[in-house]
């Protein structure tokens, strides 16, 4: 038995540069891209958002945009086989629930932030994931 299982690894991304760097290393660590699960969590948009008011946006189009973003940003061959999902709701809860549902062995989560505020806030999501996850959580510190 090893400290970190590589069978089903979950990596939540926010598409920031730090997250992308950590993501590449995670893929390298996992080896088999089919064992890597990458998710992006979306918050509900405000009912006053012009895109919602004028019905130019909904969860379908948002999901489609995120998937497009992922496939264009990471167009290397290995990434084609990675499991990518878009989730809606409260970030930490969605990550934890998804991990349980997909029977994830390890969550790799980047705790970064360019300014203090982001650092503080992202930290609290990470903290909740660490506290609530059913499996080991590897917190990636890039600063």
């Amino acid at each position: 038995m090893s400290l970190f299982s590589k069978n089903r690894v979950l990596f939540p991304t926010d598409f920031s540069e730090q997250a992308s760097a950590a993501q590449d290393l995670t893929l390298e660590f996992v080896g088999d891209p089919t064992h890597l699960y990458i998710v992006h969590v979306l918050a509900p948009l405000s009912p006053l958002e012009p895109g919602i008011v004028w019905e130019g946006m909904n969860n379908e189009t948002r999901k489609h945009n995120v998937e497009k973003t992922f496939r264009t940003k990471f167009d290397r061959a290995e990434y084609a086989q990675v499991n990518f999902d878009v989730l809606f709701g409260k970030t930490s809860k969605q990550i934890v629930d998804y991990a349980k549902e997909k029977d994830i062995d390890l969550i790799v989560i980047p705790a970064h932030g360019q300014d203090n505020l982001e650092h503080f806030i992202l930290g609290s999501v990470t903290e909740r994931v660490v506290r609530l996850a059913h499996c080991p959580v590897y917190v990636w510190r890039s600063l």
Binding site: P12, D14, F15, S16, A19, H40, V41, L42, A43, P44, G89, K90, T91, S92, E118, I121, L122, S124, V125, T126
Partner: peptide, 10 residues
């Protein structure tokens, strides 16, 4: 926005 702390804010 609690839910967008991690993710949609990037």
């Amino acid at each position: 926005y609690e839910a967008s702390e991690f993710g949609a804010n990037a």
